[in-house]
Amino acid sequence: MRENKQIWSDFIEEDRFELHSYLTYLFKQCHDENLRQLEDENIEE
């Protein structure tokens, strides 16, 4: 849970939320996860 709070605070600047930065972060996380799944599938074959 602490990690989630840290992540949110990384995208809040003064009184606004940096949506673009947050969406970019999410996209990278998703992309990394997909790459890991593909690597795992290739290893299993």
Score class of each variant (00 low, 15 high):
33 E>W: 07
16 R>T: 08
37 Q>R: 13
12 I>N: 09
39 E>W: 04
37 Q>A: 05
20 H>R: 09
14 E>N: 13
30 C>P: 00
17 F>Y: 15
34 N>L: 14
6 Q>H: 07
32 D>C: 01
44 E>H: 06
32 D>H: 06
7 I>Y: 02
35 L>E: 14
14 E>Q: 12
10 D>H: 03
28 K>N: 14
23 L>G: 02
30 C>Y: 09
18 E>W: 01
44 E>S: 07
20 H>Y: 02
19 L>A: 09
27 F>K: 14
18 E>F: 03
44 E>C: 01
5 K>R: 12
9 S>P: 01
6 Q>S: 13
44 E>Q: 11
33 E>I: 08
37 Q>I: 13
22 Y>S: 03
12 I>F: 02
29 Q>V: 09
8 W>Q: 10
5 K>Q: 11
24 T>M: 02
44 E>M: 03
37 Q>K: 13
10 D>I: 00
1 M>V: 06
20 H>A: 09
31 H>M: 07
34 N>E: 12
30 C>R: 12
16 R>S: 09
27 F>N: 12
33 E>D: 04
24 T>L: 04
23 L>P: 02
5 K>G: 12
45 E>Y: 07
31 H>L: 06
26 L>Q: 15
3 E>D: 13
23 L>A: 07
7 I>D: 07
30 C>D: 07
40 D>L: 02
33 E>P: 00
18 E>S: 09
7 I>G: 06
5 K>I: 08
8 W>D: 10
3 E>M: 01
2 R>F: 01
37 Q>G: 01
32 D>E: 10
32 D>G: 03
9 S>M: 09
32 D>R: 10
30 C>L: 07
14 E>G: 04
43 I>G: 02
30 C>A: 10
16 R>Y: 03
8 W>V: 11
13 E>Y: 01
31 H>S: 10
40 D>C: 00
